[in-house]
Design a protein around this nucleic acid. Sequence first.
DNA 1: TTGTAGGCGTTATCAA
DNA 2: TTGATAACGCCTACAA
Lengths: 341, 341
Amino acid sequence: MKKRPTITDVAKHAGVSKASVSYVLNNVKKVSQSTKERVLLSIEELGYEPDFTAVSLTRQRSQLIGIILPLVNQSIASVMRENTYYNEMISAVEQRARESGFDLLLTGLSRPEHYRTWVQKRKLDGLLFFGLFPKEIYDEMRSIDVPAVLIDTYEEHTDRYPSVNIEDEKGAYLATRHLAELGHTRILFTGTNLKNPVENYRFQGYQRACRESGIASMHPVETFHYHGFKSGYEAAEKVTATDATAVFCTSDIIAQGLIRALFEQGIRVPEDLSVAGFDDIHSSRYSIPSLTTIRQQIQLKGDAAAGKLLEAMKGGSPEPEVLDVSLIVRESTAPLSKGSA
Amino acid sequence: MKKRPTITDVAKHAGVSKASVSYVLNNVKKVSQSTKERVLLSIEELGYEPDFTAVSLTRQRSQLIGIILPLVNQSIASVMRENTYYNEMISAVEQRARESGFDLLLTGLSRPEHYRTWVQKRKLDGLLFFGLFPKEIYDEMRSIDVPAVLIDTYEEHTDRYPSVNIEDEKGAYLATRHLAELGHTRILFTGTNLKNPVENYRFQGYQRACRESGIASMHPVETFHYHGFKSGYEAAEKVTATDATAVFCTSDIIAQGLIRALFEQGIRVPEDLSVAGFDDIHSSRYSIPSLTTIRQQIQLKGDAAAGKLLEAMKGGSPEPEVLDVSLIVRESTAPLSKGSA
DNA sequence: TTGTAGGCGTTATCAA
DNA sequence: TTGATAACGCCTACAA
């Protein structure tokens, strides 16, 4: 394998100095038209491409964007292997990043105190946080002031870092109201953990809808697992122990797991129990029954996050963004029927 | 933000030369116990961590592993957002890589001719190919001899690069035989494209099972799409146009899409039509009906691929590996009944 | 065993 | 407008 040409080769070939080549490369400074042409020609002829590792060293930046995913059991597996929510977002980010000349570094770091050095060692240009992390991590990041964008994160971090969120409260409100309008008066809220602000807002939306509909909120079911099938599957027990005729789940994947468990118990959805989800991940249109859910435009969200990060990396101060959501009615919800549980 | 310490700082702090620090860092050469201790102490005190970009430049390698995903419509989205097959594997790879001090670079490159420079610019240490790519890409990679491991790839590339595959032929055979044993005599094969060796082997397995069962193979249905719900959903038309009473699909995601389409047409699975899939992705245990399928241990596959790559990067020559598969019988297949289509 | 110095490929400073 | 040349942070002969 012949070595690839360096800037020195180009300089020689064009009969100019390395500096000049660098100038035209980064079109900085004025370069005479003639040398510029000569340099460009040499670059073309030699098939030269700048070496990122060298550029990284001098520029102190890497053209790399780090994606921070939640770790469950020392692995991002739980988060990637069932719920395509993250994957849909990552793919959107990847495309946007690639178009702008950035590559994506994927990781779930194990220990918070490692983040900082990781970012520094790699000289990451920007970070995308998918979800909420321990507070100390944000502090670490701030101390090395690396641009970052937070997705699905509320709290005080947001006013320091740009964020992309959705109308969580509204989404849950819409779903719950939909169920109420179908005649349900015993509507259950099922989530993973109300300590998470995202879910908490959704719970508030649920409560508001109940209030406005003149029905009583029920004690929420929390699974204390991540958003996966199993979480919903195992929640079934708690769900069936109530007299609810309708359930709002804070994610589609939980809803799907729940529906599966109900199916095994002979409880029909929606005939016996209506179930609504949240996210509108891809599979929800294809599941049986297809899922009534709150659509958040996941790809748009990823794209927006990537866009804001690119802007922040250029020195801008992008505004936080809150994307709208909408109710998608499919097969998993139905009017309250006489025979309901 | 205070600058992070460099090797020079450590050297000063310890009262030795940069070289000595480097020596203990890479424990190369003999270093006296005393200086070694002093250096380690300084490293500890200063919280020093080597800068990867600098190391990359001198060592000519990056501690980075590139993941090459198929691009559909200029995006890896299609491949990541529905079928968790890839995601399950990526997460396994990520964990293994992280444990060994490597980070993952995620990408779907648009143009084959870009791969080479991409790998070189980033000084990637190794590549993981998920699926089959245009031949020219392998040639490019060979020309810069970067270690790589191919997943789900047959053909002559395999004898140059280590590969991880599964018993594709056997898997399809098992599934088809299962359907035949249930009494089905009109069994349909549905895949995306028989030109892909993986699918072709599966077709051969299908044919063998038919032969051994004394039933006629049917003309295969090809969707000519990637493995997604839509692919299966749209295949329904072709499927129902036949007199098949059972269908073997080359992926779970296709099977799920197909089942959904059948559901909409009032065709019950498995009562009216048995459907078997391939992969055993996570959702297949939770779908309704749950899917009879061929299990490939996806995480194991990813882990094996990562392991081989790590070995190859150390200069080893890992053997190709073919993982076993097994039949998982669930709800989507049933004995042929009188009333079947 | 330890230190000096050159090099990795670019960018950036400063003269010329 | 251009060209030396010194960083950037680390590794590694080669010397000492």
